[in-house]
């Protein structure tokens, strides 16, 4: 399993994501946002940070970068695509995931360990978690309030697209949403940082299993389809 870690100007979790992939025994390579192909990769990781300085809107500029078409192609080819934090914002901007991320309702930037619930373990990303299992991942965002229309929210619920929720909603997200997948189940966007939860000594290693899941993508994704 070889992952592309897409790097935009202003990405700052790229090395953590690279480290996460390597730690679970997968291969990883950085790919510049000006590249136009991801054909050599089995999966795509879009890191957190502040791509293009969050100019105009979070993820707006990254959403029209040359690499974007290849990210959409990889998603069409049923490869796993994981966007974390700014990566989630980018996935909503390019339309691979519904809704948008807006300013936290409490106005502040929040950086801390957060208690979350895996509400759908029947996906290629969450297969080896128990249903409704609690995990701790750090969050670090100012614009992580998930927003969508009531209609979209009902659709997300009906299709079991909500994967991860906050146990105590920190940012005003509708339905306590922290992470969602697309209908097909191969594109996951989430605000919390599993790639920063790989060492128990640093607070949590709950993030490891998410990457272990994606490393065995073929096996895991196939069994839930």
């Amino acid at each position: 399993m070889k992952f592309a870690v897409v790097r935009f100007p202003g990405s700052n979790c790229d090395r953590d994501l690279y480290n996460a992939a390597v730690k679970v025994g997968a291969k990883a390579e950085y790919v510049d946002y000006r590249e136009t192909s991801l054909d050599d990769f089995d999966g795509v990781l879009i890191p957190g940070g502040f791509s293009f300085g969050d100019y105009l809107r979070t993820g707006a500029m990254a959403g029209v970068a040359p690499i974007t078409k290849s990210i959409k192609k990889a998603a069409d080819e049923d490869k796993p695509v994981l966007g974390i934090c700014n990566g989630f914002q980018i996935l909503t901007e390019i339309g691979l995931l519904p809704g948008a991320l807006i300013h936290n309702t409490g106005h502040t930037f929040i950086s801390r360990n957060e208690s979350l619930k895996i509400v759908n373990n029947n996906t290629g990303f969450t297969k080896n978690h128990a249903e409704n299992e609690d995990v701790v991942y750090p969050i670090a965002h100012g614009e992580g309030c998930y927003y969508c229309t009531d209609e979209t929210y009902e659709e997300l619920k009906d299709n079991n697209q909500i994967i991860l929720t906050y146990n105590e909603n920190p940012n005003g997200s509708i339905g306590d949403i922290a992470g969602i997948i697309n209908k097909r189940g191969n594109v996951l966007g989430m605000m919390p940082h599993p790639e920063r939860a790989l060492e128990a000594v640093l607070g949590s290693d709950d993030g490891l299993r998410l990457f272990e899941n994606i490393k065995s993508w073929e096996e895991n994704h196939d069994t839930v389809r």
Partner: peptide
């Protein structure tokens, strides 16, 4: 529609 605005919000 493509860049300047996000018509979701």
């Amino acid at each position: 529609e493509r860049l300047f605005a996000n018509t979701v919000i």
